[in-house]
Amino acid sequence: MDFYCESLYQAFSLIISADAELAEVFWLSVKVSLTALLIACALGLPLGAFLAVHRFSGRGMLIGFINTLMGMPPVVIGLIVYLHLSRSGPLGWMGLLYTPTAMIIAQVILITPIIAALSCQIVEDLHEDYRDLFASLCVPSHVAILSYIYDARYSLLTVVLAGFGRAVSEVGAVIVVGGNIDHLTRVMTTTIALETSKGELEMALALGLILMVKALFINACGQRIKTTAQAKAYV
């Protein structure tokens, strides 16, 4: 139990002293994951809605493919991104390996399938409800998809939070493509991995606790918004 006390104490003293290095690592984590989330939402939400609404040949295969990607270990995704971005890889000329951009790319690949698969489920339910009405009003396909995303926005918020949680807590992919470089690509999770490998277990756990508090805060916000929406029957 001493272990937790020591870690809690370290976590608090890190936060209270506003440790500059911790702040840098923390904000890079947030920046990378939020950017990845934004891109993943722009891709995954319409894709999920499209798959929910349209029936076409190959749809089953595409959904199966997305579900497979969803179960892919982050380190494998990291490896694939590494092989592409490496100087000897096909996209090596862009010089993106070991940059925050590479980490964003890996996280986008990691969470887009999650957002697409989960939003597909949610939009399918809404589609049951709206289908006849939209057919009757001759709503064009792209308007329908945007309307589904808009009207399901509070339910989709959970999906977005799940995506963010996955992005911000993931270490396998970002450590491979980012390289855990000090002041450049070091984020919360890679710092935790580093501290663990240095045997600084209390410090690692302290950082983990900070990460947990962040996750808690984000989820509380999401829950708050959702409860408000439920009260107004928008979900």
Binding site: D132, C138, S147, Y234, V235
Partner: peptide, 20 residues
């Protein structure tokens, strides 16, 4: 065809309203 459907309106048995 589509242009004729657009000139019709249909009211369903179960009232369908948007979540707005």
């Amino acid at each position: 065809d589509q242009s004729i459907i657009k000139r019709q309106s249909f009211i369903f048995q179960a009232p369908t309203v948007l979540r707005r």
